[in-house]
Design a protein around this nucleic acid. Sequence first.
RNA 1: GGCGCCGUCGCCAAGUGGUAAGGCAAGGGUCUGCAAAACCCUCAUCGUCGGUUCGACUCCGAUCGGUGCCUCCA
Length: 503
Amino acid sequence: MLKVYNTLTRKQEEFKTREKGKVYIYACGVTPYDFPHIGHGRSAVIYDVMHRYLEYKGYEVIHISNFTDIDDKIINRSNELHINYKELADKYISIYLDNLDMLNVKQLYRYPRATEHIPQIIEMVRVLKEKGYAYEISDGIYYEVSKFKEYGKLSHRDITALREGARVEVNPEKRDPLDFALWKKAKEGEPSWDSPWGKGRPGWHIECSAMSLHYLGSSFDIHGGGDDLIFPHHENEIAQSEAYTGKVPFVRYWLHNGMVIVNREKMSKSLNNFFTMNELFKRYDGEIVRLYLVSISYHKPLSFDLESLEQSSKNYEYFNQSYIRFKQLSGQENGLSSIELAKKWRERFEDAMDNDFNTALVVALLFDIFKFVNVKGSQLSGESLTEVDKLLQDIFLVLGIKKLGTIEEKINVSFKEELMVLVEGLKEEKELAEAISSISLKEEVSDIIKKLIDIRWELKSEKRFKSADLIRNRLKDIGVVLEDTNTRTTYKLIYTRGVENEK
RNA sequence: GGCGCCGUCGCCAAGUGGUAAGGCAAGGGUCUGCAAAACCCUCAUCGUCGGUUCGACUCCGAUCGGUGCCUCCA
């Protein structure tokens, strides 16, 4: 039985969907005005894992995530760059989606954009005004917080205390400092849309209410986002939406993920302590970053640092190499059975995920499974291997690490160049020149590596270890690691040279 | 000031009443030309002080330290 922690009730609750067999999810996306950082990636990955697990459990998942593609930041930034606001948003939406692709985040049902739902937004504002929840003043239409008696229920705040802490008003016409803008009247030169109140644009918050209700209807199952959105964003969404539809609840389960922390502080643009995903992907494969993100409970802050990422990189290698070996096993006749064990592991997997998506426990489980198969794998029956493999694949699918077990041939142009330089370099060595000369640079990268391995194997058998080690070391320098066994040498391409070697 | 969260081995990190998962690092081994990999072994009583309880890392109170939201933010 799946249980989730609901911010609204501050309790872990049994997860029951609005409709049998279907889950409707709205996850707050980004305001596309700059490069997305790892914090944005974390959110996306977290809701993606939930999505995948719910599918594993047999649900049909209708999952959307928005782009708030019009707001002050976008307007300001596009003015700075002298480009259209849409051009700016398009650019960063595209980068964001590319980044999510690197992280294996599944394609969603929709990616609604605020500017493409202006009619729905206007309609919502109109009704709220008609129902007496909103009023018009000189610079826009405002939501009157005091009209919504449950205001504060999500963030568990007392409305009076909130008022005391409120900042000095920009517009003194507001009836209450807590009232927030549903619609902002256009200032000179700002992008705007026609409305019953003249030209203007949506305020923040309203777009999420309008779009989630539009696509998912009221009382949909999961609304997620970073925990910095609890107040005021999600609080305001509840106020607007429940007032608008007259139906409670707007959302059945409010889920919030923790922030990414750097040096004990929240990662943010203003503190300039952020790592963009693009930066990280230069050094680490998206799957490694993803493994890192799922190694920690989703609702807690994640203290990000490169050393931890390096750790995940090693863990990833362990999983990857272990799984490669596992796939090469052939079952033994009358071999050991691990069917029961696989069953228990699957239970552990499901128990962990049912417990508010505890992916950290699942990662720990992977270590247990691999430790077992690394030792006993060769003794297992074919049936057992199949069973364990099914489980592993299910886990990989849910965690979203799909490339495990494949020798990732990250062979791009620059790698090939590096390899050629290496081969040329080896030709300079007297001991090696002759053997190396048989390698043609026109060959496939993998063939070149294999030839080098063969040459080295010969050297080893002749006990010419210095030359053999030279080849191994040179290859290591470009990310190809050779490993000897009694009978042969295998190679692997490492994903990154890591922080250590970066110096 | 209001509402929260966190403080577990050198580091990262599970854990929500029954005597501390996992990973990295470290040390010692098996293997090995060396290296790597794999495997084995070693490695914490949970910020502090009280309380509740047969029993607390887990509940309550206090205290110290860190941090989030209350203004844009995943």
